[in-house]
Design a protein around this nucleic acid. Sequence first.
DNA 1: CAATCGTGGCG
DNA 2: TCGCCAAGATT
Length: 318
Amino acid sequence: MNDVDASALRRKTVRWYGRNARDLPWRHSDCSPWGVLVSEFMLQQTPVARVLPVWRSWVETYPAPADLAAAPTGDAVRAWGRLGYPRRALRLHAAATAIVRDHGGEVPPDNDALLALPGVGRYTAAAVASFAFQQAHPVLDTNIRRVLGRVLTATPEPSASPSAAEYALAARLLPATGNAAARWNSAVMELGALVCTARTPRCDDCPLRTDCAWLRAGRPAAETPGRPRQAWHGTDRQLRGAIMAVLRAGGPVVLENFRADPASGAEVPEAGLGAAQIDALARLRDLNPDDARVDRLIGDLCADGLAVTRDGSLSLPQ
DNA sequence: CAATCGTGGCG
DNA sequence: TCGCCAAGATT
């Protein structure tokens, strides 16, 4: 890639973005860095359409980091609704707490400070630094990786995690000024979300169709799978999700048997959920959990901070 | 590094 | 219908 190519790619992509960008609330100029941070947490592995309504209610309930930090973690998990990966709600709460404690209640603009927050990895730190603070950081999410990979190296689909070469390439393409870099990052991401999609890319509508190495090569399919396929049917994850759904809906969940842990004195479940809860869980297809399995998952949920046992019942943390 | 962690819409 | 997969992070 030389400078002429990079310049042309940026011009075409940003022009396309100007005409085709979705009107997303976290892109508005009046959206706070906190609003951007919340959106980035919610958008981790979750589609925009599902995030939108939850994001709106969330920023209304928790307009600043201090508002979330002051709330019980169980409230955060409940407000998370059915976005999935409820640990993200816990980590966002922990991030808000750290922001209050270490940054005066304001989302820090520094990439390293962002990276130090719970639940913030390389992508999210760069995204917030770029989108909320207009800093020139290369952002590599799955959309941008797919677009750049296809256009520049004819790579059908991104690998499991971004390589150093991908970061070097993204850094070389990045416009110098923070504002231009943010616009470019948004534009490539949007192109990946709307046109250069994983399954059926709309190459006819792509502003980069005459530049794309992958299209030129005949759109070859991937040889080796990228991310490992997510198991779901009948797995622990499914049952874990079902238990969390019961807790969000109205818990607490009555536990069948109980004993006091001799070491800590804490109460721990011994023989699974009560009959009513088993019925509730069994309504979901293919769930037939034995007590030992339920106990193990309850233990995991408590260890993760997603649930607590108390007085013979399981509930969201206070 | 590979496994784990939810959910639901869509082709 | 049912497998694919969506702005990742953590251990």
